[in-house]
Amino acid sequence: MIKLYIEEGVSSRNLLKKVLKENDIDEKIIYNEYGKPYLKNNKIYFNISHKDNYTVLVTSKKEIGVDIEKITFRKRVLNKIANDEEKKLVKNAEDFTKLWVKKESYVKYLGMGLSYGLKNVDTLKLKKYKIKKYQDYYIAIYGDEVKEV
């Protein structure tokens, strides 16, 4: 089961501590070569994202990635990360933000972050994601436990 935590004014570190305590987990955190954190025994998978005063954390029994971003539009970034089909579909700031969080959640799921190359992610082919609007923000979750869209 995937659980999403959204907290205001709580650091990533403290939110993780709280969630691990809730799940009765006392395991060492280790990092892969790209800096993605894992629990040493992979009892649960988790991923964290932070924007402004909000911290979001997801837990899952399988590999997972999450991203939160405030609704925004950056043309230079769109040109850098989107393929031609994706560009056609982005008509406004909401579309851009959804595209961004989808790509980010996927590369965070892979555990490679920006090193994977956001342009290499074709969002039209992604299946295992969920998008949620939260106030002026979009949150995307990508993971093996997410039902295919």
Binding site: H50, K51, E69, T72, R74, R76, V77, N79, K80, I81, W100, E104, G113, L114, L118
Partner: peptide, 11 residues
Amino acid sequence: ESLDLVDLVAA
């Protein structure tokens, strides 16, 4: 954050 970094790389 990532969005700023990508913006900067493009710039």
